[in-house]
Amino acid sequence: MNVVTAQLQESSAEDRISITTSGVVILDGATAHDPMMPTSGRYVDLLCDQLRQRLNSPDGLQAILSSAIESTADALQIRPGTAPSSTVAIVRLRHDAIETLLLGDSPIVIGWTDGSQSILTDNRLAALDLPESREYRARLAAGSGYDRRHHDLLTALQSRQRQWRNREDGYWIAEADPTAAEHAIVRRDPASSVSWVVMATDGAANMLAPLGFSWEQLARLDTSALNDFLSDCHEWEAHHDPDGQLQPRSKRHDDKTVAIIRPSPARSRQTPQRFA
Rank of each mutant, 00 (worst) to 15 (best):
L51A: 05
G60L: 08
S18H: 12
A6H: 06
L157C: 09
A32F: 13
A32Y: 12
Y136R: 04
L103E: 11
L230C: 07
S159N: 12
L157R: 11
E168K: 00
R94N: 11
Q117I: 11
D222P: 02
I69L: 00
Q62T: 14
G145Q: 02
V44N: 01
A180T: 02
D254C: 05
A13P: 04
L101G: 12
A205W: 04
G212L: 00
A68R: 10
R94S: 13
R274V: 07
D74A: 13
P107E: 11
P38Y: 01
D122K: 02
D222M: 00
W112R: 11
S193D: 14
S66G: 15
C233A: 03
I98P: 01
G203T: 06
T100I: 13
H234T: 15
D243E: 13
R162G: 02
N227S: 14
N166C: 02
D49C: 05
R188W: 00
A97E: 13
D169V: 03
D129H: 04
A89W: 00
W172Q: 05
E182L: 12
R249C: 04
A259K: 08
A205E: 09
L47F: 07
S195H: 15
A184K: 09
R148D: 14
R54Q: 13
L61Y: 14
E175T: 05
V109S: 14
R249V: 03
A204M: 07
T201H: 02
P248Y: 07
A205C: 06
V44T: 14
R94K: 13
P242K: 00
T100N: 06
A204G: 06
A174Q: 03
E132H: 07
P35M: 08
A184P: 07
I19F: 04
A180Q: 05
R139K: 08
D28K: 03
G115L: 06
R79F: 12
L140C: 02
I64F: 11
D96W: 04
L103V: 01
N56G: 10
I19H: 09
R160Q: 15
D232F: 01
V109M: 15
I69N: 02
H33F: 15
H95M: 05
S67G: 09
E182D: 13
A142V: 00
K251V: 09
L125Q: 15
P131D: 01
T155S: 10
S12L: 03
R274M: 04
D177R: 02
P190S: 08
G212D: 06
V4P: 00
S268Y: 01
R274H: 11
L157F: 01
D189Q: 15
F213A: 04
M36Q: 15
H240K: 09
R267E: 14
P242I: 03
S71R: 07
Q77F: 04
L130A: 06
G203C: 09
R148S: 08
A276Q: 12
F213K: 06
S264N: 12
Q53H: 13
G203I: 09
L46H: 12
H33D: 14
H240M: 10
V4W: 05
D169N: 12
Q62L: 04
N2V: 07
T100M: 14
C233S: 03
D241N: 07
I119Q: 13
V258S: 10
M199G: 11
